[in-house]
């Protein structure tokens, strides 16, 4: 999911770059050398997992998985998604050079919101907690991106209102699929390799359960 080149007006894509610069600067502060390979791995997996086609009735859709990036990388998710967008623009001409900013803001912003949702799991304690909050993170990550996309189209001109509404409506089935896949992934990772997940709290640490 991305905005293609040539659609948005100059103020809108410039605003996209401005927003991305701010979020990138904030979320990449104090980046440790050891984090560089980890972020790159998640970016690659995010990049190729978006090639997976999921059947949806007679059609099929591609996974987005920005929610999962948030669940795995936390605040660093923004950098990973931005890199993925840059590579897509360079390799596929998917998206495009001038829309790198707005596309990063759209998917990366969604990933950050997904991480905030994911963190709320610490406030609850029940059996399938990781699945439920993973699914919520996946769903909310996707729909937040859809809202940013629709907003960018609407601010570009009245002529795009119908397209914006169509795009937003199309996000509802995508959101459900993302919820199921990200939920299952989060629950699986929690069982198989919990330290890969973001925002874990060590048992008995000062923060503890609250």
């Amino acid at each position: 999911m991305h905005i293609s080149e040539g659609i948005l007006t100059t103020p809108v894509w410039l605003a996209g770059y401005a927003g991305t610069a701010v979020l990138a600067a904030v979320t990449m502060r104090k980046l440790d050398m050891e984090e560089v390979p980890k972020i790159s791995v998640i970016t690659s997996v995010f990049f190729i997992a978006s090639l997976i086609k999921v059947p949806l009735g007679p059609a099929s859709i591609h996974l987005i998985l920005n929610g999962l990036v948030g669940v795995v990388l936390g605040w660093r998710a923004f950098a990973a998604i931005m890199l993925g967008i840059i590579l897509q623009a360079i390799i596929f001409g998917h998206g495009g050079i001038t829309v790198i900013g707005i596309n990063s803001l759209m998917l990366g912003g969604g990933a950050l919101i997904a991480y905030m949702v994911w963190q709320l799991r610490h406030r609850f304690s029940f059996k399938n907690r990781e699945f439920v909050f993973g699914a919520l993170a996946g769903a909310i990550g996707t729909i937040s991106s859809g809202i940013v996309l629709a907003t960018a189209l609407i601010t570009t001109g009245e002529a795009f209102n119908v397209i914006a509404a169509t795009v937003l409506a199309a996000h509802v089935p995508i959101m459900l699929i993302e919820a199921a896949v990200v939920g299952a992934s989060a629950a699986f990772l929690h069982k198989a390799k919990p330290d890969i997940l973001a925002g874990r709290r060590q048992p008995g640490s000062v923060q503890g359960e609250n």
Partner: peptide, 13 residues
């Protein structure tokens, strides 16, 4: 969907 979720999880690990 669950299988795809596990697939992506395994790929990540």
């Amino acid at each position: 969907m669950t299988i795809f979720g596990h697939f992506v999880g395994t790929l990540l690990i």
